[in-house]
């Protein structure tokens, strides 16, 4: 194609475009969610983490310690799978902060922030997509559990309610990681700090063992840990013994997380240089 032709083509593409009506915040958030989900297609490693860790933890704990901890491996599985579900989804929330930080350091967010759209929509979209990711992670864990011999006594609705409770908590927890993602310089640092925070929180919980045999001070800490409450609530729902107190506490903890960390996130996001 000649110079002339390509210049003409360029000019033709640059004529005045008719501006469509301004899209609302829901539409733009969903567009951002679409973008984040497209990435799963290109960066399937994201799903690998979600698959690999629960498989590894489940196999390791069930077959190495399960017998000793609960009398038999199959009995231990009934105890462990709801906990692994919580652990997997809680760890997946770290990616919210990591990918936010990536976007900022690559300049992608500068463009988004210069667009005439509802300003929180990139964040809200990312969180919607993350919720899809958490759902996938939950399904993987449950299916894995069923294959290994997890036989929940709860009804389908109770199991789904358990998963939804985990999703609500994860969504709320994500706001901590958006704050970390906005404060720190590199996504490696975000990953490092977030993991350092999460490891004690998930291990000092009742995910793997019943805290009954722990020293008093530790048992008190473990029982007060929101992750333990979530685990107890999910165990209850899946086991057909609904634990209302814990469910209420999980919902309160979720609300508190959102109330504290979402305004901080929005403040940092608007004022990010």
């Amino acid at each position: 194609m000649s110079e002339e032709q390509s210049m003409a083509k360029m000019r033709a593409a640059l004529v005045e475009q008719e501006r469509p009506p301004r899209p609302n915040g829901i539409a733009t958030s969903l567009t951002f969610a679409w973008r984040a989900l497209l990435k799963i297609k290109y960066v399937p490693e994201q799903l690998l983490d979600v698959t690999f860790f629960p498989v590894m933890f489940t196999l390791m704990f069930t077959y190495l310690f399960g017998g000793a901890l609960a009398g038999s491996t199959s009995q231990y599985l009934q105890f462990l799978i709801p906990g692994i579900l919580v652990q997997t989804v809680v760890f997946t929330t770290v990616y919210t902060g990591v990918s936010l930080n990536d976007d900022i350091s690559k300049g992608t967010f500068d463009r988004f922030r210069s667009l005439p759209i509802w300003s929180p929509s990139p964040l809200v979209g990312a969180l919607i997509a993350d919720t899809v990711r958490y759902t996938i992670a939950s399904i993987i864990v449950i299916v894995l559990g069923l294959i290994l011999g997890f036989r929940p006594a709860g009804t389908i609705l109770e199991i789904i309610a358990g998963i939804i409770l985990v999703l609500i908590f994860a969504f709320s927890l994500s706001w901590i990681f958006t704050v970390i993602g906005l404060i720190l310089q590199t996504s490696k640092a975000v990953m490092g700090i977030s993991m350092t925070l999460l490891f004690p929180v998930t291990f000092a919980s009742n995910i793997f063992v019943d805290p009954a045999t722990m020293p008093g001070w530790l048992r008190a800490t473990v029982n007060a840990n929101p992750v333990s409450m979530l685990t107890t609530a999910v165990r209850g729902l899946m086991g057909g013994r609904v634990a209302f107190t814990e469910i209420i506490w999980v919902l309160i903890a979720s609300a508190v997380l959102i109330l504290i960390f979402s305004p901080i996130t929005m403040y940092l996001y608007r004022n990010k240089r």
């Binding site: 501006r19 469509p20 009506p21 301004r22 899209p23 539409a27 733009t28 567009t31 679409w34 973008r35 497209l38 990435k39 290109y42 960066v43 690559k106 300049g107 992608t108 500068d110 463009r111 988004f112 667009l115 759209i117």
Partner: peptide, 22 residues
């Protein structure tokens, strides 16, 4: 610094912005 999304392909990047424009 390039403000396009490296993980997506060319056309997806432009569709993204066009959708955000409404």
């Amino acid at each position: 610094f390039a403000s396009v999304d490296e993980d997506l392909n060319g056309i997806e990047n432009l569709i993204l912005i066009a959708r955000l424009m409404g």
